[in-house]
Amino acid sequence: MDIVDEIRALSGKYPDRRGALLPALYVVQKEAGWLSQEALDTVSRALNLPQATVKGVATFYSMYKHRPMGRHLIQLCTNVACMIMGAERLVDLLKEKYGLEPGGTTGDGRFSLVVMECIGACDRAPAMLVDTDFHAGLTADNIFRILEEYE
């Protein structure tokens, strides 16, 4: 299914076109990993919503990315519980191993790292999301075993 059709099909599930905006943004973000001006324009046309409105919404939420991202997005929690359990050490390790800075992307475009606030897994801290997969109980050893699964 073409991307515009996919968005239009989505909009049928909501009472108005605006309701479909957030899921539609996910649809286009899935394609390139981020939202370019062209991608926002596609959503605007597909839903017949003003471009500026689409941009306003897309830039409000942090789950939408506005610059190119790596193939896989690591979202690592460094909030209180994770911090106590060594999350900051993991950040350093990622830097050592991949040269990956918080907010940055590896040179080969494999990973992007976002250091984020609580993801609700304090009982098994430290925790992270890789793309949409959840991983908890991270240690200096298993974090790389997990990440090596993502090409």
Binding site: P50, A52, T53, K55, G56, T59, F60
Partner: peptide, 9 residues
């Protein structure tokens, strides 16, 4: 006209 909007947060 719907030409501007609050971007970011």
């Amino acid at each position: 006209s719907y030409s501007i909007s609050v971007t970011g947060r």
